[in-house]
Write a protein that binds this DNA or RNA. Structure first.
Lengths: 164, 164
DNA sequence: TAAACTGTATCTATTATAATTACACTAATC
DNA sequence: GATTAGTGTAATTATAATAGATACAGTTTA
């Protein structure tokens, strides 16, 4: 998962924690340890998906654009469109290989399902739940959530017909 | 997902389809469209996890090392250790920022769960099930395509007045 | 002993990523 | 309306990750 994503989540946590404050890219960049222009670019993506509000001009900057409980990691994922599970096919000049294409399409199918499952998982985390967890700052057992996820995955596999 | 992974899966499909044949890195590289040295490196990882058998020396090469039904995408994933969901934290010099570290550890926690879910999902796919699926698409697609071509041909024959 | 392999390290080329710079545009304030 | 402080975005440069290429030691067969 690329750093755009972690930067986006980090910024949203900062914004959600200070609902009344407007942050500019300079101050956010110091919080998040990234370049202001990069912050602006990432925030721009989030704005297009309604996750943050931006204001140009003097005194402008960024503010939370939605309820932190509704701001799920899935929505952020979709805003950034990082596609970590997209398969890489570096092969050059395989246009004349139908067998290659067939394998490729079947694998792409399998990993489309994987990505869908990932998004369902990420839908269970929100900026709000992340903040609450940082405040607890105690590592709990991930088993309950993991178990729920596995059930989802299984349902998903049935749905798309994996190894059916 | 990096191309090491797709190359590994592709090679395993080739090996599983020809259980009695020993492939060397040169012949595999032509099938898979990658450099022989790269094939050897990837196969070496798979060997360490028991997915392929390798034999050095004259007449040596690679052969399937396990039942294709037991060769799941999860095992291949673990062999390659590509870690597509590993969070990237490009921030430099954040050693003195405890708040940053807390956010980081909570997010790492969330994505550890995501990766576990992914592996559970991939455990439902095997080299065997992938091969079966490619064979399905073989028997399906050519029929529909042939039908389409025949229609085109017939239309074309009418147009030029063949068989008149 | 020679030939045909794997295993692995190293170097180079290419690509992806991140930082930097620059500037047009916007909005508030004097 | 001029100035100031901000976003939006493109272009350029620097750096890191990835893939290809080469080389050679070690292994097995004949």
């Amino acid at each position: 998962m690329n750093s755009q994503y972690t930067i986006a989540v980090h910024c949203l946590i900062v914004l959600a924690k200070t609902p009344d404050h407007v942050w500019n890219s300079e101050s956010l960049s110091q919080k998040v340890h990234a370049h202001p222009a990069r912050i602006r670019k990432i925030m721009s993506s989030l704005r297009k998906n309604g996750l943050v509000e931006t204001k140009e001009g003097l005194g402008g900057g960024y503010r939370m654009g939605c309820d932190p409980r509704a701001c799920t990691l899935a929505r952020i994922y979709q805003s950034i469109s990082c596609e970590p599970l997209k398969l890489s096919w570096c092969a050059t000049g395989c246009a004349q290989d139908p067998e290659f294409d067939r394998i490729r399409s079947v694998m792409d199918f399998a990993f489309t399902g994987a990505e869908r499952g990932l998004e369902e998982y990420l839908d269970h985390w929100s900026i709000d739940s992340l903040i609450k967890r940082t405040e607890q700052s105690v590592t709990q057992e991930p088993e309950t959530m993991a178990a729920g996820i596995n059930e989802q995955m299984n349902a998903h596999i049935k749905k798309i017909g994996g190894e059916g």
